[in-house]
């Protein structure tokens, strides 16, 4: 083990932490923004008006067939063309992540809502509740319980995907580690660290999802 210099981790901690902060920011914004937008898209998809459901399902289908790297590139080059000034890689990456993840969260929310028995909404409506109240008081609380494991799972995927932002020259955690690795010739140490960190974060989130699933009353 004498060939290894594990001290490199401590010496580059600040730089790595910056990378981790960017990864965390991307996960947070992609999840919150993606859920909000995805929720709206899901309501549109579930609507009986084709004017709402067709655009939403087209959007979801298109987004889900594209690789995220392509979407990141697109926004990086396209957004400045559209609005006529550069927006910076962080803004374009955040935007790309939100719009991309919204398609996936839409499907999660839609599955959650469709899973609630149709009679539940009839029962609520029959007591005089309005549609929005039925959705908020009866359908969503039940749908959310079914959705939680899927949402946690999606967060794991988003976290893993944050490493792709290197294509628009942003330094997420993995990119930061690989910069140190090549600068100081400490590839083994750095990539071992990255593996352990990803493993711990993703495994604990997955475990949380499993725990949540088991805790649900049948």
């Amino acid at each position: 083990m004498s060939d290894f210099d594990w001290g490199i981790i401590a010496r580059s901690a600040a730089f790595l932490a910056e990378g981790m902060a960017l990864s965390a920011l991307l996960v947070l914004v992609a999840t919150v923004g993606g859920l909000v937008l995805g929720f709206g898209l899901a309501l549109m998809r579930l609507s009986s008006h084709r004017l709402l459901s067709v655009p939403a399902s087209t959007y979801v289908t298109v987004m889900r067939t594209l690789p995220l790297v392509l979407v990141l590139f697109w926004f990086y080059f396209l957004v400045p063309l559209v609005i006529g000034r550069p927006v910076g890689s962080l803004t374009s990456a955040l935007l790309a992540f939100v719009l991309f993840e919204a398609a996936f969260y839409c499907e999660i929310v839609r599955a959650g809502i469709s899973n609630v028995r149709h009679g539940q909404s009839d029962a609520g409506l029959a007591t005089g509740l309005r549609r929005a109240q039925v959705l908020r008081l009866i359908i969503l609380p039940q749908a959310l319980r079914a959705m939680m494991p899927l949402i946690l799972n999606q967060i794991v995927i988003v976290f893993q995907d944050t490493s792709l932002v290197y294509v628009v020259s942003l330094h997420d955690f993995l990119t930061a580690a690989s910069v140190v690795a090549s600068r100081d010739g400490r590839a083994t140490e750095m990539y071992a660290l990255v593996a352990v960190v990803y493993l711990v974060i993703c495994l604990s989130t997955t475990k949380a999802a499993e725990f949540y699933r088991k805790g649900l009353p049948s």
């Binding site: 028995r117 009839d122 029962a123 409506l125 029959a126 007591t127 005089g128 309005r130 609380p141």
Partner: peptide
Amino acid sequence: LPALRARIGMVFQTFELYPH
């Protein structure tokens, strides 16, 4: 319609109580 429904009670074959 909601106001009208509020004046008529309905009981379903499958109960449809809110499980949460």
